[in-house]
Design a protein around this nucleic acid. Structure first.
Lengths: 161, 161
DNA sequence: TTCCCTCTCATACTTTCGGGTGATTTGATG
DNA sequence: CATCAAATCACCCGAAAGTATGAGAGGGAA
């Protein structure tokens, strides 16, 4: 991983590295000239040259690190297909197969809407106990153990929208 | 042959060469200043610091100059075909808008499957009380008063398949 | 480090569900 | 008329769901 990233780094910044080498060579040239025409006992110049080189490299590295997030902008055009409003058709064969009564289907629909037994009772003008009876037989016929399971199954069987 | 390649090299890297020359000139300038004003030995640290600072800036400037033209904006156009067959994609903006957490989404999915709180607790290896807490906050955020209402709304908002 | 959010768990309480049993009425059907 | 399915209602009980409140652990951001 480190190897590949290093390799890609080299590839991406090959120019910068090349320029760095060029700079180093120039500095050596400078040093050589200095040694050639000036006095040798000033070792401090070599030191300063090294510092200059080092910090030039540091600056380059810093700049590259800091400007890295200039990532390419990737635009993805998406074609979204909106599902058309499905026309709900009651699966009557299934209703017959399961032996569901009209009232049970009504109650099932109300349950699917999220109504409580009490609310369903109020809406259908019957007592809660009646709704309980209907929902119980509903669960029996749908082999469900809860309202949610009943709604799940009913939805799969196209008994409700 | 060598001549033409050398010329093209110069043309292609004229900037780098220019920068190298500038660098060399700067070094000569420093040298000259040093000789001119006879920088005292106990100020050498300041001098080196200045050099470091200067060349760091130079490096940064160099790197920015060299790497800036390399920024490319790549535009990828993609056509995505969404089949009506059960391709569920989570409505993430809605998740963010409602502030639903990961765990809450998990619980929501389990609820939609028809699991009881106890079953969800067993499947997620937590206590029933935890599931109750999650589902409560879930109902708050979905403005639902029961599991069924929550599932209903979540289905409409494409939070669950 | 402090603060905030998430996840976790607990306790206590109320409401709703689901199961079981049994009963009455009504309408259709043979 | 007798019968049967459907619809209605009641009572009870345990389980599950939902509400309210508090609190601790851990991770990430300021």
């Amino acid at each position: 991983m480190i190897l590949t990233s290093t390799r890609s780094f080299v590839r991406r910044h090959s120019q910068a590295i090349l320029y760095g080498i060029v700079l180093a060579l120039l500095l050596f040239l400078l040093k050589w000239l200095e040694l050639r025409f000036l006095i040798i006992h000033h070792l401090i110049e070599i030191y300063i040259g090294g510092v200059a080189l080092l910090f030039t490299g540091l600056g380059i590295w810093l700049a590259i690190k800091l400007t890295n997030p200039k990532v390419r902008t990737v635009v993805i055009e998406k074609e979204v297909f909106v599902k058309p409003t499905e026309t709900f058709a009651l699966n009557e064969p299934e209703v017959l197969r399961l032996g569901l009564s009209k009232r049970e289907l009504e109650v099932l629909a109300k349950i699917a809407e999220g109504s409580s037994n009490q609310q369903i009772a109020d809406q259908l003008f019957v007592s809660v106990n009646t709704i309980k009876t209907h929902s119980s037989s509903l669960f029996d016929k749908l082999e469900a153990r809860s309202r949610i399971q009943a709604v799940e199954k009913a939805r799969r069987l196209r008994l409700i929208p």
